[in-house]
């Protein structure tokens, strides 16, 4: 329910506000023209802002040495996700040393809140929050990221290697 308020008498003095606003704009513009280096804004999209290494952007699924997805479909990320945006379907892998792997791994990026819980929950360093943040798309279908997009999109150049290697662990006797 909205209540319509009658304008206050003070509202009649709007001209002061307008001029003070215009003055601020003018002042900043002049400062920026003569002091270009200190300008806080960037010329997007020609210029792009560099975020810190801990920035949580779009998800990346890491890969094993043989190029397959590291994820073991344990569902801990999906369980932990507060936005409920991860959907995984697991299947039996023909290689018994792998045993379980995801046949589909989808993130509904529109629901994602980029909290990073998935990354933290992952026991095998299979999912990381990457540095990308531009997520344009034309329709809803462009925001359902599948394995192809999460692990092998062009700018990952064949995939990011996971830090947890099964073979190394096997040799270490874990």
């Amino acid at each position: 329910m909205s209540i319509v308020k009658k304008p206050d008498w003070k509202a009649n003095w709007y001209l002061i506000g307008i001029f003070s606003g215009l003055w601020f704009t003018l002042k900043t513009m002049v400062i920026n023209i003569f002091n270009k280096d200190k300008m806080p804004t960037v010329n997007y999209p020609e210029e792009k802002y560099e975020y810190g290494p801990r920035f949580k952007g779009n998800h990346v699924l890491t890969v094993k040495k043989d190029g397959s997805v590291r994820c073991t479909a344990c569902m801990l990320c999906a369980t932990n996700c507060p936005a409920n945006c991860i959907t995984i379907a697991a299947a039996e892998h023909e290689d018994p040393t792998v045993e379980k792997y995801p046949i589909s791994y989808e993130i509904d990026i529109l629901r994602c809140v980029f909290c990073g819980f998935c990354e933290e929950a992952c026991p095998v360093d299979a999912i990381r929050m990457g540095p990308e943040w531009q997520t344009p798309g034309l329709g809803h279908q462009d925001f359902h990221y599948d394995i192809q997009k999460l692990a092998y999109r062009a700018n990952l150049k064949g995939g990011v290697l996971s830090r947890v290697d099964d073979e190394e662990r096997h040799h270490a006797g874990i």
Binding site: C74, P123, V124, I174
Partner: peptide, 11 residues
Amino acid sequence: HPLDCPICDQA
């Protein structure tokens, strides 16, 4: 006991 919990159905 192996650290299989992520892929173990019993987890």
